[in-house]
Amino acid sequence: MASGLAGQMLAILAALALAPILSGWVAQCRAWLQSRSAPPLWQPWLVLHKLFLREVVLAQGASPLFSAVPFLVFACMVTACAIIPTLSTDLPLSVVADAVALVGVLALARVLLSLAAMDIGTAFGSLGARRDMLVGFLAEPALLMVLFTAALGAHSTALASMVDVLAHRELAILPSLAFAGVAFTMVSVAENGRIPVDNPTTHLELTMIHEALILEYSGPHLALIEWAASLKLFAYSCIGIALFFPWGLAANDSPLALLFALPILVAKLALGGAVLAVAESVSAKMRIFRVPEYLAIAFVLAVIGVLVHILLGS
């Protein structure tokens, strides 16, 4: 049990430390693809460090909710990272929450952030909240369907056992998972506010989704939200890796096994980040009214994944 706790701590710490690095890596790849020299890999850490040193400015009329939300959102994302089998399938917290709870935790963070944006009462806060909820309402069912497709194979909605089953069969990519994989990629892009759904680097208020929600935050509050955003990207990448490329996960909870699993995870994340950067660099942002269509496609593909699973009976 003690080693289990140590392993769990290691997994959480790894997530906290690696998440900003993953964002930095994607930014680096994007810069290179634009013929620019890139900022250092740990640039997001430097930004977080700076933000923690700055003071908080509260907008007029901000309620206590506004100040509480960064901490709550951050806590949600840490929880999400803790229950995802990032390094091992055998961690104490993994049994606490299943896939449905994970979707709930992610949805909670979204609702809190939208509430905080509307709390200030600026036009852009409400605009961003409205758009973000639109994305969320459509993305969450699709995400659930993807997780169900995987759960059908494992006869369990616990993430750890799903991944365990997937990792230890002779051919890991099932036909149903091909559909689920495409659907999951589409949902992840939308949920993390990446191109083509949202542009994380835009300076245009009128086109923003996620950025519009956090315009009023400053200093440590902003740092927590930025950190939470990179944790979210990290969480989604890890779910994707665990479901579709589970090889190399530690099957027990000894810290040594986890330490071996870490470099494999880093390598897979690096590859995934590079692919994300390429995909973002070659595509333009879609119109906002195409987003529902886009997410409807993801949902239908996830449902077909379930159907294919039932048809092939495997």
Partner: peptide, 24 residues
Amino acid sequence: STVGLQLIDLLAAVSLLLAFGLLI
């Protein structure tokens, strides 16, 4: 041959995926 059969299922699924790609 088991792997081969699974691969054929997988490829058929990919083909259906592409059919949906054509549709949208």
